[in-house]
Structure formats: structure tokens, C-alpha cells
Nucleic acid binder design. Structure first.
Lengths: 135, 135
DNA sequence: TTCGATGCAAAAAGTTTGCAGCGAA
DNA sequence: TTCGCTGCAAACTTTTTGCATCGAA
């Protein structure tokens, strides 16, 4: 089991406010893929004085820190996934629904130095594309 | 080299119109990740009577057919990538820019039957997450 | 001839921005 | 005390929808 999101953020010296803590708690306690709007709802249930702006600000920071993944959701909206380690995704090319999956052979995957183009690697997300039984 | 996009579409019995053919040609002739707007521009340069609506309609169909990949772009916009030969992506978690990369070990990757959840596999997109030198 | 594709205009959805005030460190 | 976080409202970008018409098969 990985360390709690909130704990990792404290360790990193991330500036803490009631809003940011609440948002991190919502993310950390959820293994589903939430939209910004859903995160706002959840967060407000615990702390009414949270705004959508702050949710977006916070998400952008967490994504840039590599603590949260940004996924293409069903429609235009993005979904956010805190469970960064050891799981990947299966997405229906038709309806866009996303499931978590655990592929085999992922440990052999690597990106050669020559393919890095000056980037610092933060993680990997393997996205299987399929068609669900409803589509 | 894989078969041309347009050719594959004909084989599949995809209904052909001047607009759809042009859009497919733009996609097929481009190994970059285009936004809907960019596709519209390119298509209009060849055939003025193409609308954004048709670009979206067509893209949605091609994605649902598994012929084109849908990627999260820099901002809210999505980018479209003709599903050519095995290549994958490296995305900056900070600015969202996407590069094509060729990872090693991808051939060992598989999704066990038990993880399919009734889906029919269409493809895989391996998305490496990193931070580019500008960020 | 028929049913699906097309384009327009309008609306919706989702995200970003500017700015003044507030509060964590 | 300071610098960064916050929230509101407005702007903006991107995508979707309704509907009448058109044309590929």
C-alpha cells in the first residue's frame, strides 16, 4: 500500500490550507475517477467554502507534481485519478468509460534515454482501448 | 508500413462523401496530433465545403471504430492521432505537450482475460508522463 | 428512393482569468 | 509581514445539439 496522498504532500512541503487539505482528502479517499465538478461536490460536503477555481488550481498543481493523473473522460471533461501507482486503464473507444486494470508484462516496459527528449520521467499510464459490452 | 487509413475505411464499407474522404486524407497524411480546428483548416484548404460539425462527427466515428486515437491535448482541447504503426506517447504533466515515442518491452504487455470485463480490445496507448525541459 | 451525412446557428459544457482580499508560514 | 492561496464573476474555448436540406448507395 502506498503512502497517503496527503502525507506525501506534507512531506513535500506543500502549502496547506483547509481547502487544499479537503481536496487532497477527497482525492486520496477515492479510487474512482472524479471530474472537477464531482470533486467540488465532495469537498463542499466536508467544507462548504471551497470554490471551483480552487479545485482547478489544486488539481493542476497535483498533476504537475505527478501526484494525480489526468485522464480523458466520457465527454469533454477530464477525470482525475490519485491512485498513481500500479494500475492502468481500459477505456471504451465508444462511450469513453474508464476502468482500472492490472496488465501483465508492464514491468518490462521502459523508455530508452534516446526517446526522452530532455524529459524527466514521472510515471506511465497504459491505456488499453476497447469496446465495452454496451457499445 | 500499415495500410492507408482511407483504404481501410473503404474496405470496412464506410460511407464515403467528399468531406469524409478529405478528413480521412488529412488524418492519414499527418503523423502529428491535430486538434479538430486544425483538421478543419487543413481539410478546408483542400475542400472548402467542410464544416466543423462534420469534422467532429467524422472524428467521433473514426475513434469509435478504433481507427483514430483521442488524446488529451494541452488545454481543454483534444488531439487526434491516426492509429498508424505501433507508437506511443510521452506527455508533459506540466504543459501537456505530447511527443511520439517508441518504448522497449511493449511486446510483453498483455491484458489477462479476467481484466477485460467484457470488452473487445482495439489497441493500446502507452502514455509516459514526464516533465519537459521548458517546465 | 431512402436513410444517413451535412452545415448552420445556437446552446451547452468545461475551463481559465483578473483582481481584490485573506491567511499560512 | 509576505507571498501565495482563495473566491467571485466574467470571459473564453471547445464541443454538442436541433433541424432542414442534400446526396451516396
Amino acid at each position: 500500500m502506498s503512502t497517503e496522498l496527503l502525507e506525501r504532500l506534507r512531506t513535500r512541503g506543500w502549502r496547506m490550507t483547509p481547502q487544499r487539505r479537503t481536496i487532497a482528502e477527497v482525492l486520496g479517499g477515492n479510487h474512482v475517477h472524479l471530474t472537477a465538478e464531482e470533486i467540488l461536490d465532495e469537498a463542499r460536503a466536508r467544507l462548504p467554502e471551497v470554490s471551483l477555481t480552487t479545485v482547478y488550481n489544486t488539481l493542476h498543481e497535483l498533476v504537475a507534481m505527478g501526484e494525480v493523473r489526468e485522464l480523458v473522460g466520457q465527454r469533454g471533461s477530464k477525470r482525475y485519478d490519485p491512485n498513481v501507482e500500479a494500475h492502468h486503464h481500459l477505456r471504451c473507444v465508444c462511450c469513453g468509460r474508464i476502468l482500472d486494470v492490472r496488465p501483465e508484462g508492464a514491468e518490462h516496459l521502459r523508455l530508452p534515454e534516446s526517446e526522452l527528449h530532455g524529459h524527466t520521467l514521472v510515471g506511465v499510464d497504459i491505456v488499453f482501448e476497447g469496446r465495452c459490452s454496451d457499445c
